[in-house]
Nucleic acid binder design. Structure first.
Lengths: 146, 146
DNA sequence: ATAACACCTAAACCTAACTTCAGGTCAAGA
DNA sequence: TCTTGACCTGAAGTTAGGTTTAGGTGTTAT
């Protein structure tokens, strides 16, 4: 059993955030002893899951739904699995999107390297994609397609 | 030369957003004819860059700085390049982070698949990482390391 | 000429996820 | 005793990135 201050310390987050999460219903089974929150192993594990789901881009209200499912027992396994599947698909799409952005950034880095070398953007502004060096062309294509 | 309405149409965004961007100084050289905004090729290109930088996680005020550098001419090539390099590093770190989250999600998907098959989490709760199937173990490791 | 549009502005409003504030309880140490 | 520190609450404040509203101008179609 941990106090809110200990948990805040363990997870490196402010106490106010933990109280906020509690208020949002993220710890549906948390005990209290004369008004004071007691974090058990269950809440610690919940907090680990919360961190993961937040990083996966989930909103608090959807995380609450998940926590409620956990309280409801084994009948909600399918919903919980579906939620993770949906998150997985979302995450894969995000990563693909970010790789395209990364290629754009790589292209821009190359671009300014050339501009600095030439002292201006004249040559680059006039350059058509077909004239790009082969490796840069590949980056250019992957960041400009679709 | 395009009107704000045409540009909004072209980029699939509300007119209010374009006005907001303008107010934030994202089009430092935009012309006006008797009060009415005229978007030239320069602003269209700026908007494409804005979309890219936003997707790369940049804040409006930093995008404004970039636009200002662009107005200042070739003396700011080094700053602009440095900005893209910094964004590139940031993006690479983000993608790495997201891949770790993705592995966590894959593990959770596997976990609930097992739980549904078994009807409960007993076997899984008792399972120590060393007992995980080899392929799942790899995912588990990559999502729990560091 | 009058209504419908597209444009303009400043200012208020919105949302998520917190954070800060003001005020209050309770236990332990000097 | 008194004051320090950890806990509690509800409510208000914060931030980013817009969106909405209210009120006004100017051009075009009927």
């Amino acid at each position: 059993m941990y106090s809110i201050g200990q948990v805040a310390e363990m997870f490196g987050m402010p106490v106010s955030t933990l109280r906020y999460y509690d208020k949002q219903g993220l710890f549906p089974n948390m005990e209290r002893v004369s008004g004071i929150r007691k974090f058990s192993e269950q809440e610690i594990e919940a907090l680990r899951v919360i961190e993961c789901l937040k990083k996966a881009g989930m909103e608090i209200k959807d995380i609450r739904k998940f926590m409620d499912w956990c309280s409801e027992g084994s009948s909600t396994y399918p919903q919980r699995k579906a939620m993770f599947e949906e998150r997985k698909a979302h995450m894969e799409a995000e990563i693909a999107r970010m790789n395209r952005i990364l290629d754009m950034l790589k292209f821009k880095c190359w671009y300014y390297e050339q501009a600095i070398r030439d002292g201006n953007e004249e040559k680059l502004a006039a350059m058509i994609p077909d004239e790009l060096p082969k490796d840069i062309r590949a980056i250019y294509d992957s960041s400009h397609e679709k």
